[in-house]
Simulated scan of single mutants.
Amino acid sequence: MKETLYSKISTPILSVVDTFEFTKNLDVALRSVDIKKLKETFEKSSLLNHPEVEDFLLQGSITFKRFNNLDEKIELLSVEDINTKCSACSLGKTVRAYHVKYKKQGVFSVVYSSSFAINLDLINGELYDFAWCNFYLNKEEMSQFTRI
């Protein structure tokens, strides 16, 4: 029998210890831009039955699609993480963004970049919610923001 986990603000999804392990594994998975590793992260934390996971993984597969296109043979050059601010749903909240530099193997040596961000709702070290952040300040905007 599948266990249904209920969360959303009122109760934590994971304990402090489990949240620490989850966020560490999540960071590794996001840096790899590999949807299989992302799914394994939720599986390790027994969260596959959580109501938000299916949508989170679906958006992850869309976000990671360009990096996992076998026809294009993408080479990851670097993945830099930055703390930034959400500019929409959680206005002003600190979110974690990942800036990926990559190139397509072939004749031209063009370096591309792409970014994505996640919003983890942590209260006293416990995970209450997780989501993709679709509108956040980029690195240049953050440097201007911190000067104010």
Rank of each mutant, 00 (worst) to 15 (best):
K24D: 09
K24G: 04
K24I: 01
L26A: 09
L26K: 02
L26F: 07
A29R: 07
L30Q: 08
R31H: 13
V33W: 09
D34G: 05
K36C: 07
K36E: 13
K37E: 12
K37W: 00
K37G: 15
K39R: 12
E43M: 10
E43A: 14
S45Y: 11
S45P: 08
S46N: 14
L47H: 06
H50C: 04
H50M: 08
H50Q: 06
H50G: 04
P51R: 05
P51Y: 08
E52D: 11
V53T: 11
E54S: 13
E54N: 12
D55T: 13
D55H: 05
D55F: 02
F56I: 15
F56M: 08
F56L: 12
L58N: 15
L58T: 15
G60E: 01
I62W: 14
I62K: 11
T63P: 01
T63V: 07
F64S: 10
K65Y: 00
N68Q: 15
N68D: 09
N68I: 07
N68M: 10
N68A: 08
N69S: 13
N69E: 13
E72D: 10
K73A: 10
K73Y: 04
I74P: 14
I74Q: 10
L77H: 03
S78C: 05
S78V: 01
D81Q: 11
I82H: 09
I82G: 03
N83I: 04
N83F: 08
K85Y: 03
K85C: 03
K85P: 00
K85M: 06
K85G: 00
K85I: 04
C86W: 03
S87P: 00
A88Q: 08
S90D: 03
S90Y: 15
S90K: 07
L91Q: 10
L91E: 10
G92L: 12
G92Q: 12
K93N: 15
K93F: 14
V95Y: 00
R96T: 15
A97C: 11
A97M: 14
A97L: 06
V100Q: 08
K101Q: 06
K101C: 02
Y102H: 13
K103P: 04
K104H: 10
Q105C: 05
F108I: 06
F108Q: 06
S109T: 09
V111N: 08
F116Q: 08
F116R: 02
A117H: 00
I118V: 14
I118G: 10
I118W: 00
N119T: 05
N119W: 00
L120M: 06
L120D: 05
L122D: 01
